[in-house]
Design a protein around this nucleic acid. Structure first.
Lengths: 229, 229
DNA sequence: TTAATAGTGTCTGTCAGACACTATGTG
DNA sequence: CACATAGTGTCTGACAGACACTATTAA
């Protein structure tokens, strides 16, 4: 493989995010090849032209292989490239980010995944720290004006729980009335008829779920365009 | 690994946009190689690992080579990839978009560039029409909340001219007072001291220019994050 | 009853839109 | 002067934030 050097190596890396105990977590895997075998990095892998339709397809495949997840919210983030990001030479990483409910992470308990609070990630190999930071920034930014965080929720949830998730992502308290008005306008969740959550000495909460047609949003491009147009 | 063929071809394509006579124009070039030699497409080319630092560097090089332009607003748009977008096989295009003042297009008059009103682009080879549409949508979207369109303006301009550009991009009339309040808040342009534009039987207009530190914005990532944080 | 959280009614300050007004040039 | 465009003052309706209030459960 002397000429492979001429053509850049094309990979897909993933930033897999979930929320547990009011903390945003990212998943890392242990590298099994050199260079840096045994070091924790973002999950990723080469594109397989023979089996992947496109980069999104590769992301789906890698997500399935490394995390056992099949249909979370998945969107292209940015493409990182250059001569110096990987010691093996000029490389391209088409980075995608995914949001997963912590419940589905637990279901498919996967020892090879390590979930780290994003705030505690201070160093990662290659350019993976910048990648992680960009993904987190993107999610926080979209949280300001979209319903993106619903993809971090379990199948059903209360509006108070959803508000808590927004507050964690935005690192600021939100007003209950304002929050509920916004969510209603966004029109992405619906009441689960008759389902209440009783969990303590207080009024039970109406349960909500993602509206069906939004449930498997695989955004291939800037889906926020529609929101503001 | 027998597999140089297996490695996808990595290219950078450009959506070069300018504004002339109240119309948004995109630039096309005539392909000089097969397949589709002689057909008009978006400018682009392979990444040159030996001379390009990264994809942005390749974009800058291609922009210089094909359009003679050196420092317009340039930003990564999206990466298009897959087995079916190019007959030669699995390919990756890291698409960037650039905004250029029509004045600088004229200076470096380049016969090989054809400027087409984006509304009139009804078909392009490969997936270039989707690419063009996404770029235009991105620019229009950012116009709603950012100062992006200033990069389409000549060195100095009046606020009325800038408003006209916003109106063309948004395809809607804007209120003068509201527009000027917004531009002032964005804090990206400054008065050119004492410079007035006299062009008719009416009060002359104060000239403005980009604030210096923003003049050469080469965004490597989502620069709109900062705007909304 | 109290405590705790769910959910609603409603006031108010802010601000975008609307638009009338003034300013300043040419002919 | 008339006319055209530049630029400003200011009113107002809509709405986000604030917060008090009611609702409903367990203990």
């Amino acid at each position: 493989m002397i000429t492979t050097q001429q053509q850049p190596c094309v990979t897909v890396d993933l930033v897999l995010l979930t929320l547990k105990n009011d903390e945003l977590l990212a998943s890392l895997v242990k590298r099994d090849h050199e260079p840096l075998a045994g070091v924790w990095t973002l999950p990723g892998g080469r594109v397989h032209p023979d089996e992947d339709q496109d980069a999104l397809g590769a992301a789906v495949r890698i997500l399935k292989a490394k995390a056992g997840l099949t249909s979370p919210y998945l969107e292209q983030l940015h493409t990182f490239s250059g001569a110096h990001r990987d010691p093996r030479g000029w490389s391209v990483s088409i980075v995608h980010y995914a949001l997963v409910p912590y419940a589905s992470v637990q279901e498919r308990g996967n020892d090879r995944l390590w979930w780290v609070p994003v705030e505690e990630c201070r160093s990662l190999p290659f350019d993976h720290l910048s990648i992680l930071r960009l993904a987190v920034a993107r999610v926080r930014s979209k949280t300001l004006y979209s319903s993106l965080p619903v993809h971090l929720m379990p199948k059903t949830f209360s509006l108070s729980e959803l508000q808590r998730v927004y507050e964690v992502l935005l690192r600021a308290p939100l007003d209950k009335r304002t929050f509920r008005r916004r969510i209603e306008e966004l029109d992405v969740v619906e009441r689960v008829p008759g389902l209440l959550q009783k969990d303590g000495a207080h009024r039970p909460a109406q349960q909500y779920r993602l509206k069906p047609f939004r449930a498997h949003a695989l955004a291939t491009a800037d889906s926020n365009l529609a929101l503001r147009a």
